[in-house]
Design a protein around this nucleic acid. Structure first.
Length: 501
RNA sequence: GGUCGCGUGGCCGAGUGGCUAGGCAGAGGUCUGCAAAACCUUGUACGGCGGUUCGAAUCCGUCCGCGACCUCCA
């Protein structure tokens, strides 16, 4: 594996593969967005933070990326077996709102949360209801190809026929149609409209009470959930594009059926690389309200939950997520968050010090070689399937070097200006551009923080005089009172530094 | 029951056929008026049992446990 090349773990082949874009320099990436029927789930946040880092890294590599992430605002049923209510409509009735009010409300909430986590906005964020025509056209194409059938105003994708003509069905999820068949034979009688239980609706006839419905050649109805992603990815990225992503839980049936629809419509596989993010657990188990084992992003930020001992800021939560690989389950625990908080502060503080270094020394070969190696490894780690935890660990290994410079240690102090600049650039690019973190103190508003800094310098100066006079009671009083305000003084060889706790 | 995946030191979490992850916590030291911070040093690890191999925590089998999805049940 060449560390200069990007490798991606491809869910479709279950292999780590070298990434080669369809068109040199350009990447089309589609990620399944949220169904906006309730407040965004913390697990969703992890997924979109993961793809945000992937997006940012691809941009960093110089690709021109078209990142499409949809908003599902129709067709996602409470029960995936093509029965049950539309999630949006159900919520609309519950809250006595127009369906589109529900959609707007939770879309706004989702966007706000994505901002809180400092993720970049996608290039295009299409909505299912805005693409009914495209979906109807796709149903027609699939019908024309003989891979769907109409039944009582609804249209179903014929999985049996598709699977018999094509080995693709089940490839992503590892499911085999024969098994699906034998598994659910008992169901067959119940479903009079479907020819086979594994068939799925691509258009559904709506009854009179249904809130969201459109005219189509088959009935007044609405599109099946899986169809929107096929239609919108095709519209904005073409029939064949580079990367398709989503949460692990969408692999089956959603993504499997998406592939089937695209192939059924144009006989081409939609994406070369499929990326699936893994689940966020809490205390070792899945988050579920019914088990009282769940926490919302807001609760994390306010500390208002029995599961955590204190509040954690968004960047600490994000840092916590980045310390695991997107493909692994991540276990949210109070101890884990506490550790992440300390780590986050340590690395941010080192960066703040680093960026303020003005003059380099004469150069020190040993240290500079070590720095160069670590910087290269950080990049190689990101190239290896976006390994953020490993890449972060390289930055952490650079922290003692930076802090030694602060202490005026021999060897570390005479790093050349060139290497210092390289370090500055590396930290800035990785922490902020690629990982999308923010220094929460720095971002609190420059006007305030610069006055605040001036004030702190004054206080430190007064305390220094007291210390020179060995007036320990005054100097300790300043230190202790500031500590009570969560401002920590740190006496070092080069003078006193301060930080916010 | 099926499909996919996971099980690493006190906690979180990378990685690998023989060679340091990293963070947090712990221990010792340096520094300090004292402290904190910082720096240096440091420990027990790869679920159980078999097998392949000169050598496996890393590959294979099996058992146990966990998670997601599907199914079943409710």
């Amino acid at each position: 594996m060449n560390t200069q090349d990007l490798y991606i773990q491809n869910s479709l082949t279950r292999e780590k593969e070298k990434f080669e874009p369809i068109e040199e320099g350009f990447i089309g990436m589609y990620v399944c967005g949220p169904t906006v029927y309730s407040d965004v789930h913390l697990g969703n946040c992890r997924t979109f933070v993961s793809f945000d880092v992937i997006y940012r890294y691809l941009l960093h590599l110089g690709y021109k990326v078209r990142y499409v992430r949809n908003i599902t605002d129709v067709g996602h049923l409470t029960d995936d077996a093509d029965q049950g209510e539309d999630k949006i409509a159900k919520r609309a009735k519950l809250e006595k709102l127009e369906p589109m009010e529900v959609v707007q409300k939770y879309t706004n909430g989702f966007h706000d949360m994505m901002d809180v986590f400092n993720t970049k906005k996608p290039s295009i964020e299409p909505r299912a209801t805005g693409h009914i025509m495209e979906q109807i056209k796709m149903v027609e194409a699939i019908l024309d190809n003989g891979l769907a059938y109409e039944s009582n105003g609804s249209v179903y994708f014929n999985t049996v026929k598709f699977a018999s003509e094509n080995e693709e069905y089940g490839k992503l999820s590892g499911r085999v149609i024969d098994e699906l068949m034998s598994e659910s034979r008992d169901d067959l009688k119940k479903q009079d409209e479907k020819q086979h239980p594994s068939d799925f609706a691509i258009w559904m006839r709506a009854d009179e009470t249904h809130l969201m419905k459109w005219e189509s050649p088959w009935s007044i109805g609405f599109p099946g959930w899986h169809l929107e992603c096929s239609a919108m990815s095709t519209k904005y990225l073409g029939e064949h594009f580079d990367i398709h992503g989503g949460g692990n839980d969408l692999k089956f049936p959603h993504h499997e059926n998406e592939i089937a629809q695209n192939m059924g419509a144009c006989n081409c596989t939609p994406a070369n690389y499929w990326i699936h993010t893994n689940m966020l657990l809490m205390n070792g188990r899945k988050m579920a309200k019914s088990d009282n084992n769940s926490i919302t992003p807001e609760q994390l930020f306010t500390g208002d939950s029995e599961h955590i001992s204190k509040a954690y800021s968004p960047m600490i939560v994000k840092f916590f997520m980045l310390q695991s690989h997107y493909g692994s389950t991540l276990d949210l625990t109070d101890a884990g968050l506490l550790a992440a908080e300390k780590g986050y502060k340590r690395i941010m503080e080192a960066n703040r010090y680093l960026q303020a270094i003005e003059n380099g020394g004469n150069g020190n070969e040993d240290v500079e070689e070590k720095i160069g190696t670590l910087i290269n490894q950080a990049q190689a780690d990101m190239n290896d399937d976006f390994n953020t935890p490993k890449s972060l660990s390289r930055l952490f290994e650079l922290v003692p070097i930076i802090n030694s410079h602060k202490d005026g240690k021999e060897g570390f102090s005479d790093i050349s200006q060139q290497v210092i600049d390289k370090l500055k650039q590396t930290f800035s690019i990785y922490l902020f551009d690629i990982f999308g973190l923010k220094d929460e103190f720095e971002s609190e508003g420059n006007a305030i923080s610069s006055k605040f800094s001036g004030l702190m310098e004054l206080i430190i100066d007064i305390r220094k005089d007291a210390r020179t006079e060995k007036n320990w009671s005054t100097s300790d009083k300043i230190r202790d009172k500031l500590q009570e305000l969560d401002i920590q003084l740190k006496d070092g060889k080069e003078g006193t530094h301060w930080s916010l706790n």
